[in-house]
Write a protein that binds this DNA or RNA. Structure first.
Lengths: 136, 136
DNA sequence: TTGAACCTTCCCATAGTGGTAAGGTCAAGC
DNA sequence: GCTTGACCTTACCACTATGGGAAGGTTCAA
């Protein structure tokens, strides 16, 4: 059993976030010492590591909630896990697409802007135009 | 002079956000009718359109603050505008890089997961491993 | 005069993370 | 035994950008 700061160090999360995850019910409330200090077992450490991994892949807390349930369900079908992952991949794709559009438009503007001492600036001009920008 | 909902329609922003932008000082407080209704001129409409364009390119409110100042400064150097745009492009790049990493890792996991009725699942297994995920 | 469609301000919610403040606890050193 | 520093606790507030809703005022037309 270890305290929260150790659990944080070993899991790669912050103490703050571990408490937060408990608050929002992503993890069960940790056991407490008589003084009220949270205590973490190695099983809980693994869970925290799982969460950090999932977060680093961009899964939301809600998605991780589902992932944890699957993780803890010995009768799961890997199909369900894969389904969640594929769904998340789609979200990542959409985000990428949005970023790419921005990048393309901005790159174009930047290329056409002299970038000198003159006040004439395509970027300002185009942002000022009533036309669309491709994101609505 | 038009009311906020018309200004919203013409600019592509929501009434809500126009008020918000006023709150945070991105735009000057609009004139009011005797009854307290906000009134927008065509010059202000252009400014709102500018903001929407900039937002659709992913510029933050803080960045748009700077862009608006440059827009309104006849003595600006386009270099400064370009500088802001390039900086934002870098941020977009970083975000895209992060997404790409996630995509790559997740794609790999998904490819190695059977996705059938069996509980065996590479995704769960790898998320459970103590190893790194490449994002820390 | 009444009702619909506006408008106002104010508060709350989202997602995830960090900061900080006020207070309790534990262990080491004097 | 007492102090000190490093930890812990809870409870707020902040960020970004946006939306929802409530409670109440206004405008205009039927």
């Amino acid at each position: 059993m270890m305290r929260i700061s150790e659990a944080a160090q070993h899991s790669g999360l912050s103490s703050k976030m571990i408490r937060h995850y408990e608050d929002v019910g992503l993890i069960q409330a940790a056991a407490r010492t008589e003084a009220g200090y949270r205590q973490y077992s190695s099983a809980q450490l693994e869970q925290l590591g799982f969460i950090r991994h999932a977060r680093s892949l961009g899964f939301s807390i809600a998605q991780i909630r589902d992932l944890l349930q699957l993780r803890d369900n010995p009768h799961r079908a890997s199909r369900e896990v894969k389904q969640l992952a594929l769904q998340h991949l789609q979200e990542l794709d959409q985000r990428m697409l949005a970023l790419k559009k921005m990048q393309a438009m901005l790159n174009d503007l930047v290329a056409r802007c002299a970038g000198d001492d003159s006040p004439d600036c395509v970027i300002i001009d185009e942002l000022s135009e009533p036309g669309v920008t491709g994101n609505e």
